[in-house]
Design a protein around this nucleic acid. Structure first.
Length: 125
RNA sequence: AAGGCAAAUCGGUCUAUCGCUGCUUCAUCUGUAUGGAUGGGGGAGAGGAAAGUCCGGGCAGCAUAGAGCGCCGUACUUCCUAACGGGAAGGUACCUUUAUCGGUAACAGAAAGUGCCACAGAAAGGAAAACUACCUUAGCUGAUUUCGGUCACUGGGGAAAAGGUGAAAAGGUGAGGUAAGAGCUCACCGAGCUGGCGGCGACGUCAGCUGCAUGGUAAACCUUACGGGCUGAAAGACCAUGUAAACCCGGGAUUGAGGAUUGCUCGUCCGAUCCGGGAGGGUAGGUCGAUUGACGCUAAUGGUGACAUUAGUGCUAGAUAAAUGAUAGACAUUUGGAUCUUGGUCCGAAUACAGAACCCGGCUUAUAGAUUUGCCUUUUGU
């Protein structure tokens, strides 16, 4: 299993995003709220959207910083989830929303992302 | 050497591990094929403001983008530029300064017209007016008298000087003059006009003439000159998908009902594929546009300068729910503390503003810190 997290892992298309946002199962782990739903996709086991509200962070620089930290945390810790999904031949679309009002450092974000992914595993598999 | 002001330039570096987005190349697999997938190698990957979206241009579209009116913008001069509301060099006024330097300017027109000028004041635009005060004159008026007059009151006339109001009372100051006064006359200053000279020009300067009522406001309407067709990369083109110029009901016109074009008019164009209502659906995925350009760097030449020309050289992001990151360490700069040998060591903190979204030229705003140049001040040395 490589640490790769390329373009195929990115969720695109307004219809699927709308679907996940409307109907996905809600899984919370502060400072994140995520919505997860099963999709069919032969390119990657998971596809992820990361969202940071413009209302909470006015500057594009800070939004980019948070999104990059979250993406890095998911990239480093997604192995268990991906293997589980490959076992049961499922694919997931995950919509991650950052809800905190302040910028957290990478250590905390990684710790919480680990717990979030564990919750997704127990919910979906 | 330190501090201040102005201008210009730069705005962290390196290593390791794991990653992201294009480009290129090799191998393997697959496909009729442009290709696709996997793995490896090489090389590239945010800014001076990428920001605000305030101007200008390129580019693209409009079943014509034309004319007039309207509307909007600009407003000292000359030049630069693809263009500009930007820039350069100057002019004028004001501020600052011993003087320079420097700063600010919605810097066209108020004798084309209209409006407004609160409060105060007699009067705020009409060659106006008389509250106090000035001069003069008249009276079967009054008081007083040294019988000449003087004062008061009332009426007529002169004057626009003094006081008072105001941001502003209609050239200013001084002298002459006068019944009192007045550019009535004179000197100086100011203003206007005419001419000469200098300058491409804004304008400057010199001389002469005119005794010179005619304010402010155009960030009020307005006038003059110049400019502007509208939309905006979610533009637009192609491919794929789709019965889509499709269906039903009502109205309306046969040579003009209606529609498009810019707010209106004309003109032009389209024109049964018209107008109103209703029912039921579909797409929103990819490629191009899109990064070689009014491009960057260096040198020479021309120009006070903005800039231009010529020669050489370089290719320097191209994402699209949106790449350029994470972790660890070292260095650099600034700074706080401790220590002693006073410039070393140790420990700690800080390193800004901020993220390309079609591309350029500007403007504006944010910005830790560093460097260079010029000017000024202080101190030290010679």
């Amino acid at each position: 299993m490589t640490g790769s997290f390329g373009k195929t892992y990115k969720l695109t298309g307004s219809k699927t995003i709308e679907l996940v946002y409307r109907q996905g199962a809600v899984i919370k782990e502060y400072p994140f709220i995520s919505r997860v739903s099963e999709i069919t996709n032969d390119k990657a086991p998971i596809q992820v959207v990361i969202s940071v509200s413009k209302r909470n962070f006015k500057k594009a620089v800070t939004r980019n910083l948070i999104k990059r930290r979250i993406r890095e945390a998911i990239r480093l810790n997604k192995t268990d989830l991906v293997q589980g999904l490959e076992h049961s031949n499922k694919q997931l679309a995950i919509f991650v929303i950052y809800t905190a009002k302040e910028v957290h450092d990478f250590e905390l974000i990684e710790h919480r992302i680990k717990r979030l992914l564990a919750k997704i595993i127990s919910h979906e598999i």
